[in-house]
Structure formats: structure tokens, C-alpha cells
Amino acid sequence: MLDIAEELNRWVEQGRDFAVATVVAVGGSAPRQPGAALAVDSDGTAIGSVSGGCVEGAVYELCQQALEDGGSVLERFGYSDEDAFAVGLTCGGIIDILVTPVRADSAARPVLGAALAAAASGEAAAVARITSGPAELVGRALLVRADTDTEGGYEGGLGGHPELDRTVAGEARALLDAGRTGTVEIGEDGSRCGQPLTVLVESSVPPPRMIVFGAIDFASALVKIGAFLGYRVTVCDARPVFATAARFPDADEIVVEWPHKYLERTEVDARTVLCVLTHDAKFDVPLLELALRLPVAYVGAMGSRRTHEDRNKRLREVGLTELELARLRSPIGLDLGARTPEETALSIAAEIVANRRGGSGVSLTGAHTPIHHDGSRRPAGRIGSVA
């Protein structure tokens, strides 16, 4: 649901009634992951997607029905061998979708509205919703913010045992800290035993950072694709004549400073990617000496294999270990045969995505690897159902 927070927040501000269908669990080769959503308002306007087209029509009808009767429903969609014309996923996967009405009089509207406003404004927040369990609890929600003074650390409630809210809030905060969306199973009384409830926790965190060092033509193309992938992109170069807004209109930030000095003072985290395109030892060595010791997601450096060997020699001389050097992706990018700045940017972006999602980088044709996989994501838990 939070993946379409900006549009839904506008609907809330306009006072619209709507229903939102959210993927809560997947099995096999499903096109969308938990958290993906489609919403339909009382006028029939639809936004978002839960399957890339396979079951959108059926989900649209479920949303309209939820708006009429005011009840939440959990529906499973899968491939049917018996009936080729049945509504299902042609990819062979299974998805469970929770449909929740968000009408002006619904109990969940205040907390869902607050969650949408937080996500739309870029605030780190997580919303937890019961997806399976007693019918009267399904669709109930609570909100956890990264920085909150709210008593108990959450807003809203799940309507069950008092301990349930506290336990779910703790689970939601853990997933929020990791920037992940997933499901957890908890007993109705908030314990790890007893009749289980399944809870979907959707996390919304500020976009990850991409810092591109070196204001060259290749950087311009990389900035564009980095923005397209959802990164907040910074370009850093010590040369003011090259690091200009006119040359990098797609960058969120342009910094004129020695690269290693900027990296020393700026904020990075486990999702940050660092792309070193300067291929000049006086910039690269002090920068990479620092970068390879930071807890970031990716460090890549441009240059020929000869440049790479020379750079590694210099980095060993300043004290980097073989384990630290092994973190460096150099020459940067996947082997696509790239030549132009745009092709090279695609090569770099492909390596970043493969590193982030746990992909191999090999062609899917003839490969026996999953099409959709994410090395950073733990299993989403069992697929449940509403009686």
C-alpha cells in the first residue's frame, strides 16, 4: 500500500472513500512482492497494480465490493490447470491479496491515513495490518514511526489483546529499522504460542543514496539511471568547472569538494551505493581507502584492468586488507560489451541491482535460477486465509 502512498494520501486529503488491495504473501514465480497495491475509489478510479495485469480485473471488483459492504477480505489467486480461462496467474505463482475498505467511517482510516501521509512526505514509518485470524481483526492496523514520542511507540491498534499491539509494534520497528516489508506470525495474546495471527508489516523509508564521484560524461548517464531506479543521487567532484547543475540536471545534489572529504562528513547507510568514476589516483586512493571500510551496500570504481591493478597496489600500500579490497567492484559494472556512456551506465546499474537482489548477472535464457529473487529479503512466511 505504501508503494502508492502519494496518490492515496491525496485521496485521503480530498475526503474520498476507497478500498486498497495489497499483496500480503506470495508463492512461486509471482510478479509483485508483498506490499504491492491496487486501490479503487468510490468513482471507480483505479491506481497501482498487484499482478502486472493477470488478476487486476478480479481485484478491482473485490475493491468495489469492499466499498459497498465495508468488510475486509483475503483472497488467493493462483494458476489453474483445470480451467485455462479461470482468473489466475499465468506465471504459475500464487498470491494472497488483502482488500481493505478505507471509508470515512472505517476504524482503520485514521491510522492508515497517518501512515500514507508519513510515507508520502518521506518519513520513515511502518504500518502493520492483520491479514489472517479472527474476521473481526482482519484489516486492523497500527503505525510505527522511526522517531516517535507516542506512548507505547505506536499509533492506532489491532483491537485484540493489549499485549498484541506491543508485540506487533516491536516486530514492525525491527522491520522498519531494516527497511523491509514482510509478514510475521504472532499469537492472539501477543505471545509466540496459541492461535496465530498473520500480520503484514509494510515499511517506507527515505530513498537510498547513490553518490557518484567524478563529474564526467559517464556520470551524467549514471545519474539519470540512478534517479530512474529510485535513488537520491549526489554528484561530487573537486573541480567546480565540471560539477554544475547545467551538466547534471537529474542530480538531487551537486557537491564541489574533494571526494574523500565529502565522504567523511556525509551520511551513508547499508543501502548506499558509491560509484567512483574519477579513475585518477589522487582522488581514488584516499576515497576508496575510506569507502571500503564503510558499511555501505556497494562500492564500484571505473578504470581499465591495468588501472585496477595499479589502484589495488596503492590501496594495499595505505593499509587496506585483502578482505577489504574484495568488496571493491572494479572494473565497475557487468560485462555487457558497453561502449557509450549510456550503455556503461546500464552496465553499472545492472551490477548494482544484481548485488542488491542477489542475482547472478547471467542470461536467464538457459539458466536454472529464479527469475524473481532478493538476497536481502527473508521468506515472507506462510500464506494464510480468512475463514
Rank of each mutant, 00 (worst) to 15 (best):
D177K: 06
R265T: 14
I211P: 01
M210Y: 08
I211S: 05
R192A: 11
V233Q: 06
V235A: 02
H161G: 00
A270H: 15
L292M: 01
A238W: 02
L277Y: 08
T266A: 12
L175Q: 12
P249M: 02
E257N: 11
V199M: 05
V268I: 09
T244V: 03
K261Q: 10
P162G: 01
G187E: 06
L292W: 03
L175P: 12
E264C: 13
L222T: 13
T272A: 08
F283M: 15
T167S: 15
S220V: 06
L175A: 15
G230H: 08
A281I: 11
D177A: 13
F242N: 13
L274N: 12
K224C: 06
G159A: 12
R192V: 08
G187L: 07
D189W: 03
V241Y: 05
L175H: 12
V268T: 13
A215L: 11
L292G: 00
L229K: 08
G190Q: 14
A270D: 15
D177Q: 13
P249C: 04
H161P: 01
Y262P: 12
F242T: 14
R180L: 06
G160S: 04
V201R: 00
G179W: 11
F213Y: 14
A245M: 14
G194N: 07
G159D: 07
R166G: 02
C236H: 12
F218I: 03
G182D: 13
R166Q: 05
D217Q: 07
P162K: 00
V233W: 10
P208W: 13
A219C: 11
H279A: 15
A245Y: 05
A169R: 00
A238S: 09
